[in-house]
């Protein structure tokens, strides 16, 4: 079953007088219970694409269909985790998780209880009344994840969620994210994650979509058919073969872009 369709997305940014094509005719779709990673070099428009999917930005042409309905503005069914967390520093961890429910007008006791549950899910019970200022980076991102889950989204968007964390913390949070995603009782159904870390993408995703820059576009996709949980395979060739495949595709895309920018380039 297809949950989300991305159709011929095109996006340009104005840069002074000239225009830069950021995304050129990007199309793909996301199925039910799927974990998809977008990888690509910086400047390939992967974050912009994620923002278009969430409804934060508008595409110049093309459309996003969520369960057949076009997405034109942010909806509760699609939620997002930010790279730099986006927590409000003057609210406690619990209040930050409550925030999206507050806008929807959920009653104080109900939203506190729900927020409590999700903080527990990200293993942050005991830190409800702590302010972001006093939380470590990993804990902040846990709050960010709990907040994104609080509205029980169908699709979770993650914008380089682990790239501002140290490797050990990132590893723990990757496991946590996968566990929550695989838990049938917990949201979300599907996850789209933007990453520039190929190993991370191969470790987590069912499919890795590879993008190339100038203009941003899809150059291919790699199906990752490593059985889950994957922690037992990270030292085996089945894992490295996938990593190599994605790397090769990235390099091919870069070469393509360089050639287009400068035809004499070999």
């Amino acid at each position: 079953m297809i949950l989300l369709t991305i159709e011929n997305i095109k996006k340009t940014f104005a840069n002074g007088k000239s225009e830069i094509l950021v995304l050129d005719e990007v199309s793909f779709s996301i199925g039910d219970e799927e974990f998809v990673c977008l990888v690509g070099p910086s400047g390939c428009g992967k974050s912009t694409l994620l923002r278009i999917i969430s409804g934060l930005e508008k595409a110049d042409s093309g459309r996003i269909l969520f369960q057949g309905q076009p997405v034109t503005h942010p909806i509760p069914q699609i939620s997002m985790v930010f790279q730099l967390f986006g927590l409000l520093p003057w609210k406690t961890a619990l209040e930050n998780v409550e925030l999206p429910m507050e806008v929807l007008g959920v009653k104080k006791e109900d939203r506190a209880r729900t927020a409590q549950d999700y903080l527990k899910m990200v293993q942050l019970d005991g830190f409800e009344n702590t302010y972001p200022h006093d939380l470590s980076g990993g804990m902040k991102q846990r709050v960010g994840i709990a907040r994104a889950l609080a509205l029980r989204p169908v699709i979770l968007l993650m914008d380089e969620p682990f790239s501002s964390l140290d490797e050990l913390t990132a590893k723990t949070l990757r496991e946590l994210t996968l566990n929550i995603w695989r838990d049938p009782s917990a949201p979300p159904n599907s996850t789209i994650m933007v990453s520039h870390n190929v190993e991370e993408a191969v470790y987590m995703a069912d499919r890795v979509l590879v993008m190339a820059p100038r203009p941003g576009r899809l150059v291919g996709e790699v199906k990752i058919d490593i059985p889950r949980p994957r922690s037992q395979y990270v030292r085996e060739s089945i894992y490295f073969n996938h990593v190599d495949e994605v790397m090769a595709m990235l390099e091919k895309g870069k070469k393509l872009s360089d050639q287009e920018a400068n035809p004499s380039y070999k």
Binding site: R51, S54, G55, L56, P74, S79, M80, F82, Q83, L84, F85, G86, L88, W90, L99, P100, E102, V103, L104
Partner: peptide, 25 residues
């Protein structure tokens, strides 16, 4: 910061609510 603004937009803070919940604090 952009992230706060995006977060606010994502979760539907608009107009007056945005001013009282995000901008003023």
């Amino acid at each position: 910061p952009t992230e706060i603004n995006e977060m606010a937009e994502l979760f539907g803070f608009k107009g007056f609510k945005r001013v009282t919940h995000i901008v003023i604090p």
